[in-house]
Each structure stands twice: as C-alpha cells, then as structure tokens.
Design a protein around this nucleic acid. Structure first.
Length: 466
RNA sequence: GCUCCCUUCGUCUAGAGGCCUAGGACACGGCCCUCUCAAGGCCGGUACAUGGGUUCGAAUCCCAUAGGGAGCGCCA
C-alpha cells in the first residue's frame, strides 16, 4: 500500500473552544493548512463545542483570531460559511440524530442505562483485578421489556456503540504507516450522551466524513482512538478519511507542553512581541523536515512542506530556535515595519541604529532608556572597565567632550592624544560610561542621539569617586 | 493491568543494507572582522538508548530489554 501525498487534500482543524490556542494545536493546524495549500485542496475550520460546560464563545473568537494572526485562512468555517455547514458542532445536532437513528435501527448501537457512578465503579474494579477497564456489557442485550422498565423508572439512557466481535481494523496512517487493531480490545463506547449530545468519537468522525475531509492530521494521542472512529464510519457506510498522527510537541524536559514551560499559547508569544512568521518558521520545523534550512515567508512554505517527512517522535520546543527565526524575520523587515512592530513612535534614526540589537520589544525599551533615560546600575564586568580606565580618564573625557561635542571621532582622537591610550582602551570605557553596557549599537550614533547634558553627566559621574 | 506509539549531536532533523570515519540547521566554543554587540567569514567539539541476532556488510531488517508517551472517560 502506498500513501499518496500529492492529490488535492481536504484537511481540517477541529479545535474545541475550551482554552487558548496551544502551540501544539497551532502546529497541527498549520500542517493541515499547508497540506491543503500545497495540493490545491481546501482547509476547513470546525469548532467542536459539544461540551457545553467548558466551551466558551470567548475561546472560539480567540482561537480564530490567533489562527488569523499566525496567517492562516480557511476556505470553510463558522465565520466564512461553506457547503458543509454549519461548522459549529453545537448546531449540527440534526445530522447526529439522523445517524444515531441509523445506528440504532441497525442494532449497531443500543441504549445504556448505566449511571456514571456505576461505570466508574466497574472500571475501578476491573483495574484492581488487573484487567483493562472496559464496558462490562450490562445493557448490551436488554430486552424491550427491560428497557421499558428502566425508562419507567425515569432513567435516561446514553447510546452505546456495539463493537463487533472478532473484527480486524486496519488502516494506513500517513505518518506511522500500516496499523492493525482487533475489535476484541475495544469495549462498547458511548456515542450519544445522556443529554442527547454527541460524544467526541462520534461527531468528530462523522463530521470529517460528512464534510468531505480526505486527510485528517492530528496529534499522536488520537492514534489508538482511530479504530473506534473507523468502526463508526464503517457501520454507517460512510467514507473513511485518511488519518495521520504527528508526534506531540513537548517542553524542554520532554513532558507534554504545559503551563510550567512558560509561554505555550500563540497568544502569549504574540503578546511578548514575537512575529507570526517567526513562529511559523519554527513550527514548520518541529516534527517536520523541509527541504530548505533557511527562513521562508509563509507564501513559500506550502511548496516546501513535505507530508511524507512528518515526524513520529515527540518534538521538543526550544525557545532558542524561535529566537533565531525572530532575528531572521527582523532582518528582513524595513525600518518602518520595525517601527510599526515596536509601536512606540521612535525616531527613524533610533530604529535604524538599534534594530539589530533588538529581538523583542522589551530590548528596545532598554535602548530607549540608554538614549534618554536613567541607566541601570553597572554590572560587574562594566564596573571593572570603569575602574581600569580610572577617574583621570573620565576627567579628560569630560574636557574632551566639552571641546569636541557629540562627535565621537574627534572625542576619541582628543582622548587618545591626552591619555596616550588607543583602541578599545579608549572606546570601551566611553561606551560603558555612556551606555552602561559593554555592548550595543554604534557608539557614535548613540552619542549623537543623547542630549549633551545626559552625555556629559554620565562621563562626569565617573570622573570623581571611581 | 492491557493495547498502541516513540528512541540519531544539548535542540530540531537528514538518513529507507554499502554513498555514513553519520550530513544540515539552531545553540555552544575558538579565530577573523570590529570601539562593543549583532551580522558576516573560517574552524571546532558532541549523537545512531542497550543487548542479541540476520548479512560479506546494519543507524537502516528481526527479536528482546530499558526509558519515555498515549489510549482504554457521558473530555476532546
């Protein structure tokens, strides 16, 4: 069996609006998006809001806003419509009811009157006995009289899928290759909750099929769920999409990405000032090997996306690499784009000067203070530079500054003549005194941007008691 | 407990039996450039989880072991 990656793929991203857009989900969404764009297919956004308790409108809006911020657009979705709507599962109840009825009339599903407490207890018992916690089959073969009796007692049933015995379920996973499961390992599972809404296994599989999705791409955590979904689709004689399960995104410690790893949502990275293209360049290479190593604009990513090179092993998210893509992105931006990104109304000369020393907006804040604010206390290394130069050096520097003004070349020249020092021995103490740091943008330009009073005061402060 | 998945430099990855004394990117270290940092150029170190097979030959195939992860939910 060979997997074809080239035909027009209909892919989807189907998040549940119960939280912010996690980096891992953003990556799966992105891969799905790229697959559709690469093959000239379609990308669908479907919101899985069947859990009324946890689903929130706010999260749905946030999810879409973050996706858009990242640069992804979808051909079908709750806000743009499409031929297979509605795209909110909460509004698809009629579709599910139709399919539930088909399952029930075919005997492929049955009402189950066990309560959540019954089931919990049963699972616990099985676990203690060292057995896999599977549905015991209590309601599997209830007679109509028995059902009527339970209904009369006011019990509201769930609908349970009757897993066929001794069936082999096979499929070719787009990233893992051939998979084989036996139905005996799967217990009957709930497809319709007591309140009539659809459970995940069901609506997720049915909608993918109904919406014409040809390629489902999702996290590895769904791999062993796939046979269940295939069973549903087969029972309903619905078309199976192809499935692909990518390795999860994990933190530096190898554990699934979570809050304790710091920022994990797209929103957090956006708020810290990361550029969306930088984030995309990083996601593009996590669990995916492209044919290019360098930075790519979003428009060129689909052509360099290789579905056959999606990774099975979990990928660690390393912020150092994201920082690299951030720099690469910044280097490609014009001064006015950088200025717009910084959102601070900086003078063009300032932007031009410090842009190569700024990776995040927070860095610009520090340089602004250097130009016209208060310097932070000197670090150890800086302290040593000042001490090595000596108070006399700075006294001479003040004098030279009074004559030369903000022209660093003349200032340095004068100082060289008066102190007999040269090169770094002249520039380094000046830099440290003037900026408080041993590194940074061109000193000559920095000096020009400062007010004379500031520059003079900073030099003078080291001329005395150092 | 059962089933399934995963394991190449610190990190992301290339690698589909000989092209691998394992390649690239990021990070790191050194040198050059330079007032410094960044950028750029050059150089460098570090990896096939372990143990058995199969084979003339294994990172690549098979089997065990170890370690990680997922699923077995009226959560998705």
């Amino acid at each position: 069996m060979s997997i074809t990656h080239e035909s027009a793929a209909i892919t989807r991203f189907a998040p549940s609006p119960t939280g912010s857009l996690h980096l891992g989900n953003a990556r799966t969404a992105f891969f799905s998006y790229l697959w559709a764009r690469k093959t000239g297919g379609r990308f669908i956004l479907r919101i899985e809001d069947t859990d009324a308790e946890r689903s929130q409108l706010r999260f749905r809006d946030e999810l879409m806003a973050e996706l858009r911020w990242l640069g992804m657009d979808w051909d079908e979705g709750p806000d743009v419509g499409g031929p297979s709507g509605p795209y909110l599962q909460a509004e698809r109840g009629d579709f599910y009811r139709t399919q539930f009825a088909r399952l029930e009339s075919g005997g492929q599903a049955y009402p189950c009157y066990c309560t959540a407490e019954d089931l919990e207890l049963s699972r616990k018992l099985q676990r203690m006995a060292g057995k896999p916690p599977r549905y015991a089959g209590t309601c599997r073969n209830l007679s109509s009289a028995q059902r009527a009796e339970r209904e009369a007692r006011g019990l509201r049933p769930t609908l349970r899928f009757r897993v066929p015995e001794d069936e082999v379920i096979e499929f070719v996973d787009a990233v893992h290759g051939p998979q084989r499961y036996v139905s005996g390992d799967i217990g009957d599972f709930i497809v319709r909750r007591e309140d009539g809404t659809s459970a995940f296994f069901f609506c997720n599989a049915v909608d993918d099929s109904l919406m014409g999705v040809t390629q489902v791409l999702r996290g590895d955590d769904h791999l062993t769920n796939t046979p269940r979904q295939l069973l549903i689709l087969d029972a309903l004689s619905m078309r199976r999409p192809a499935y692909g399960h990518v390795g999860l995104l994990v933190g530096a410690d190898g554990a699934p990405l979570s809050k304790r790893h710091g920022s994990t949502s797209a929103q957090e990275f956006r708020e810290r000032g990361f550029l969306s293209v930088a984030v995309l360049n990083q996601l593009f290479r996590l669990g995916h090997a492209s044919d290019v190593d360098g930075w790519l604009p979003l428009a060129e990513m689909p052509a360099h996306f290789r579905p056959e090179h999606l990774g099975r092993a979990p990928a660690r998210f390393d912020e150092a690499q994201l920082l690299h893509w951030q720099k690469e992105t910044l280097e490609r931006m014009s001064n006015s784009e950088v200025a717009a990104w910084l959102k601070a109304n900086d003078a063009p000369e300032f932007i031009d000067l410090v842009r190569h020393n700024v990776v995040l907006p927070a860095d610009a804040v520090a340089w602004r203070a250097v130009v016209n604010g208060e310097l932070a206390p000197l670090g150890e290394a800086e302290q040593r530079v000042v001490e090595a130069a000596g108070a006399g050096f700075f006294a001479a520097a003040v004098e030279a500054y009074d004559q030369a003004g903000a022209d660093l070349k003349t200032l340095a020249k004068t100082l060289k003549e008066r102190t007999g020092r040269k090169g770094p021995e002249v520039f380094m103490p000046l830099r440290v005194a003037l900026t408080g740091q041993s590194h940074g943008p061109e000193l000559a330009q920095l000096l020009k941007l400062m007010t004379p009073q500031t520059a003079r005061r900073r030099l003078e402060s080291h001329a005395k008691n150092s």
